[in-house]
Structure formats: structure tokens, C-alpha cells
Design a protein around this nucleic acid. Structure first.
Length: 590
DNA sequence: GCCGTTTTCGGCCCGACTGTTTTCAGTCG
């Protein structure tokens, strides 16, 4: 949580301001939940926050022009509150709310089984505001006599609160997806399974995943459920019902299966893919026509089923383009689908090469030859070696002498594997002052240079931003690598103002990386979208440190897709001659 | 708190499940 005081001092760019306001509104929504306020009022705050996040315009600019209530979901009252906050850095309504409701108590809402009503009762009657207080109260049986509680609820709360104290964080997409795909592949062979697909945030390719949800279409649910429980991957069976069985995998991850009739598979897939916000908006659209949308289908006023077998039918019946799952976040995709202007999202099959891979010359595990052969096997036309630069000792960064030797090897490999092209590159450290980790005469040897930060993460926002801007301006730099340095799920981005960085990249024709390492995904989806708006070339890269990790490209592409990125935005969708022309154009500065 | 060629007031997404209930509130996805 945060206070308005700190928020007000941050200032910063358009997008950052928008994010600030969105977070403030979301916090207010949580406090209103604790007060057990009218749910629709609460939703008004969360939708307003969402819509502000989806803006590509600076909210301060909108406010200055008095157009705040043009933003969907923002009316007179919210416009006034936002105005007050932007002008004064404070919001009195929020401060009053904090007097009434202890802000720490929002943690209670995280406990499964506790919603607005019970959370409100807990702190109002027992003064409970933290999970540990809750756990103690449950263990001492002080909850069971409260209205709306009972022995069962108390027992569940004790269990969940204890679990929450030592819970595993959200899973990385790159961990969850392979497991879900393994389960799906095993079950797909079963004769009773007609269709099977991961759903939920996994299908939307969110960077982290709460639960693994897999949807099955079958006419014989009990048999599928049984087969699921028998899977060798299952360490423990948590639930065995005919429609919602659940297991714990060897890795200790929970996988929930949902089995539905083939007749409503499309409706169920749409429903279980979410996001919640997308679905709410979609149902609103159905409601405008007097129709109803549920996991069983789209129904007209008389209860007649209009669509349910496939997702396409459902979107079509609502006069929408089918929306790719990665876009289903209610960030403008429904409007775009209505106007038939959804983006042509970049696809993995359009990727012609990987511009960021390490070999065993620095901290990679595999020899250059093996990396090349694997890239060829993936159908690529080119691969850049981008081993670390000299100062990164922990990763055995290459000395200028080694760089020259590696150049010779690259030339040999290019003869041997022609027409495949190895690009001799490097991932060059951006030093704290913004200079690069090789002298210019070494930088000139490379076909392609990616500049990244691997040290001095603690610089102030101003110095960090200036550091990266200086690197972008260096004529040798072709790509800015993992631009925020975040590591999921816990290491936040270093303090950098990305807006001017992206603008400078657009100006200098420097590509910005979408790094596909599952714990990076950096740029993220939101900033990738912003980059396309600013005309920044993007590079989806694996940052592979082994043959196997070339597979990370799929996560880079998935993140790009979530950011509305099209093939034309991505330099490594270009055929080799076009890519070389782009690199040459950069080299002309040198 | 928002929104409107059915409405400026009365709606606001939907269904299942659970446990607390004696007809339904609360939570979840």
C-alpha cells in the first residue's frame, strides 16, 4: 500500500501518472470493499482504474483540457476526485476513508472464503486487521459465533490463513505452461476427450499465473476425471468430482480440470479464459440486446441458445471479431473488435531469427555450433551470438582478444552453414555513466550490438534514465536489452523513466528488446504497446543460455502479442536481407 | 459511482457452491 504523500512527489511521465491514478482508485475500491459498500460503486472505481490504464494519452493533459469525464466509466464525481488529486497531490476522500477503515485490513480479502462482508465484520466486531490476528482468532474459536460465520467457515479460514502465511507465489508463465501442456498432451490421447486446452490466465499468456486451469470437452466426464487422477504426473489427488477434478503435480502445482459437454465447449472456453473484466464487458454487450451470456452459451430473451459450440460463434453473434486470448484484458479490445480493427498480432511462425543468445564462450551452456544447429532446426534464417562483455566477470565476459577470435569462428560457421547467417554480436554492459563496456574499435567489429544494464541498479531515476539515453545515442548500439531489469516475481524494475527512453529509441532507430526469459518478459506487455505507439522497433529475443532456452522466444512473442504488437513492429520478423539493411543503416552512423 | 433511442432513476454479469440458514447470504471464478 502507499500514501498519497509519496505519490504526489513522484511526478514523472504520462504513463506513470496514469498508473498512479489507477492505483489510487483501486486502493479506494479495496477500502470500499472493507466497508462492505455497494458493489456497483466499488466496481465503478475498478473499471475507472482499468480504463485509465488503457489510455495512451496523458491523464494530466486530459484533465487540463477538462475532458476527464470523456473517459469511459468516469463521471462527474470521479472526474472531480482525479482533478483534485492531480492538482494537489492529495485526495481528501481517500484520506477520510483511511480514517474509517484500516488500510492494512485489505489483506484479509486475500484469504479464500473472506469477501467484503466477512472482512467488514471481522475488523468491525473483533478488530482483526491482519492475517496473523485472523489465524489466532480462528484457532481460538472466536469466529464461529459471528453472524455469517460458523464452525465450517472458521475451520476453512484457519486452514487458508495458515496456508497463506507460507503460500507459493504466482507461477511464472514459463513454468506453468509446459506443465499444463504436458497434462493436456497426455489426456488428449484418451478416447473420451474430444478437445482439451489450457484456459484462464495461462491461455491469455499472462506473465504470472495463479492456477493452472485446463478445459476438456467430453461426453463421458467421469472417465476423463478418472484418467486425470491416474496420470503419472499426479502426486496427489485433491478432488475427484466428475466435472471439476483437481490434482497436485510432482512439482507440487495444483492443476484443475473442468469437463464440459461438447455442445457448450466454446462458451466454456470463452468463459474460463477470461479475463474477468473482459467477460463482464462482453456480458454487458449481450445485455444491451436483452441477451444473456454464461459458460453455457449466449441466449436470447426467450432463453433460446444463439451460440455455444465455438468461441468464434459467440463473438460473431455479438457482432465482434474473434478476440485473441492475449488481448482479453478489457483494454480496448472489445471496441476494436466491434470496429473490425483488431491488430494482426505477431505470430511465432513469423519470427525469422533470434538476436540474443549466449554461447559457452561466456555464460551459455552450449557450444556455438550447437546453438547454430538448433536455430536452423527451428527454421530460423539467422542467429546472433551475444556473449557478455569484458567487465561482467561473473558471466565470463569476453576480452577484446576473445572477441577477435570469436569473429573468426563466426566467419567459419557462416561458411559451413550458409545460407544460414550467424551474426557476430555482443551483449555489452552499459556502465554506470552510460558509456559502453568496449572501446569503439572493438564495438566496430560486431555485426550487431545489444546494450544492457547488469550493474549499479541503485542509481537515481534521473541518473539511470540519463545512463540509458546516452547508450541509445551511441551509434554502435542496435538493440536496448531487457530495458527495466526486473526479475519476476520479486525483483522490481530499476528506477527508470521509460517514456523518454522509448522516444529516443524511436528517434535513433534503436530497437528495444522484449526479452523472453520467463522471469524477465521485459519490456512487459503494457510498455510494448506504448513502444508501438511511439514507433519504436521491437526485437523479440530468447536470451537463450542453452539450446533448450531458444524456446523462450515463444514467451517473448506472447508478451508482444499481449502488447498489441504486429509483425511489422518486430525487426526479427524481417528476412535476412532486410535485417542486414536495417543493421547497415545503423552502422552508417559509426 | 456510472449510465441512458426502452430510463435522469433504477438498473448495473452470471451461475454454482457452501454453509448458514428456514428461504438465502456470501464467496468464487
Amino acid at each position: 500500500m502507499y500514501g498519497c504523500e509519496t505519490l504526489g512527489q513522484q511526478g514523472g511521465t504520462a504513463m506513470r501518472r496514469n498508473e498512479e491514478v489507477a492505483q489510487l482508485l483501486e486502493t479506494i475500491a479495496e477500502l470500499l470493499m472493507l466497508k462492505d459498500e455497494n458493489p456497483y460503486r466499488i466496481r465503478a472505481y475498478t473499471t475507472a482504474a482499468q480504463n485509465i490504464r488503457a489510455l495512451s494519452e496523458d491523464i494530466e493533459e486530459i484533465a487540463r483540457q477538462g475532458r476527464l469525464d470523456d473517459i469511459p466509466g468516469i463521471g462527474e464525481a470521479l472526474a472531480a476526485k482525479i482533478q483534485e488529486y492531480l492538482e494537489t497531490g492529495r485526495l481528501r476522500y481517500y484520506e477520510e476513508l483511511k480514517q474509517e477503515v484500516p488500510e492494512v485490513a485489505v489483506d484479509l480479502l486475500e484469504v479464500p472464503g473472506i469477501g467484503p462482508a466477512r472482512a467488514h465484520r471481522l475488523y468491525e466486531t473483533l478488530g482483526i486487521t491482519t492475517i496473523s490476528e485472523l489465524l489466532r482468532a480462528a484457532q481460538e474459536h472466536r469466529l464461529r459465533d459471528l453472524p455469517g460465520f460458523g464452525p465450517k467457515v472458521e475451520e476453512r479460514i484457519a486452514r487458508e490463513a495458515a496456508r497463506l502465511a507460507q503460500r507459493t507465489r504466482r507461477l511464472l508463465l514459463g513454468v506453468a505452461l509446459p506443465i499444463a501442456e504436458e497434462v493436456a498432451a497426455l489426456l488428449r490421447r484418451h478416447p473420451a476427450v474430444e478437445a482439451i486446452e489450457p484456459a484462464g490466465s495461462l491461455r491469455r499468456m499472462k506473465e504470472t499465473i495463479g492456477d493452472i486451469d485446463i478445459l476438456v470437452s467430453s461426453r463421458q466426464p467421469p472417465e476423463v476425471s478418472h484418467a486425470f487422477a491416474q496420470l503419472p504426473i499426479a502426486r496427489e489427488v485433491l478432488a475427484t468430482g466428475p466435472t471439476r477434478p483437481s490434482i497436485l503435480t510432482r512439482e507440487g502445482l495444483q492443476v484443475d480440470l473442468r469437463i464440459v459437454e461438447p455442445d457448450c465447449y466454446g462458451a466454456a472456453l470463452q468463459y474460463f479464459t477470461g479475463s474477468k473484466e473482459h467477460n463482464i464487458a462482453l456480458r454487458g454487450l449481450a445485455a444491451e440486446r436483452g441477451w444473456k451470456l454464461s459458460e453455457y452459451g449466449l441466449f436470447d430473451k426467450g432463453g433460446q441458445r444463439l451460440a455455444s459450440r465455438t468461441e468464434e460463434e459467440i463473438y460473431q453473434a455479438l457482432a465482434l471479431q474473434w478476440v485473441p486470448p492475449e488481448l482479453r484484458e478489457n483494454r480496448g479490445e472489445i471496441e476494436a473488435a466491434r470496429e473490425h480493427r483488431l491488430p494482426q498480432l505477431v505470430e511465432l511462425s513469423q519470427i525469422r531469427g533470434d538476436l540474443h543468445a549466449h554461447t559457452d564462450w561466456s555464460d551459455g551452456h552450449d557450444a556455438p555450433e550447437r546453438m547454430v544447429e538448433a536455430a536452423i532446426a527451428r527454421g530460423y534464417e539467422y542467429l546472433a551470438f551475444s556473449d557478455h562483455s569484458q567487465s561482467l566477470a561473473v558471466a565470463r565476459g569476453l576480452s577484446p582478444e576473445q572477441v577477435r577470435k570469436q569473429r573468426q569462428l563466426v566467419d567459419e560457421l557462416n561458411e559451413r552453414y550458409a545460407p544460414f547467417r550467424v551474426l557476430h554480436g555482443a551483449e555489452v554492459n552499459i556502465l554506470p555513466d552510460g558509456t559502453l563496456d568496449y572501446p569503439d574499435e572493438v564495438l566496430e567489429l560486431f555485426d550487431i550490438v545489444t546494450a544492457s544494464i547488469h550493474s549499479a541498479f541503485e542509481l537515481s531515476r534521473e541518473r539511470m534514465t540519463a545512463r540509458v539515453l546516452r547508450a541509445i545515442e551511441h551509434p554502435a548500439v542496435d538493440i536496448l536489452g531487457h530495458p527495466t531489469g526486473r526479475l519476476l516475481p520479486s525483483l522490481p524494475p530499476y528506477d527508470i523513466d521509460l517514456e523518454p527512453v522509448l522516444k529516443a529509441a524511436a528517434e535513433h532507430g534503436v530497437a528495444v528488446e522484449i526479452n523472453g526469459q520467463p522471469d524477465r518478459l521485459d519490456l512487459d506487455d503494457v510498455w510494448s504497446r506504448r513502444a508501438t505507439e511511439l514507433g519504436v522497433p521491437l526485437a523479440t529475443n530468447s536470451d537463450a543460455h542453452s539450446v533448450r532456452q531458444l524456446e523462450n522466444m515463444r514467451y517473448a512473442v506472447a508478451t508482444a502479442r499481449r502488447g498489441w504488437v504486429e509483425a511489422r513492429h518486430v525487426v526479427n520478423t524481417r528476412p535476412l536481407p532486410d535485417l542486414l539493411a536495417w543493421l547497415k543503416r545503423r552502422a552508417a552512423y559509426r
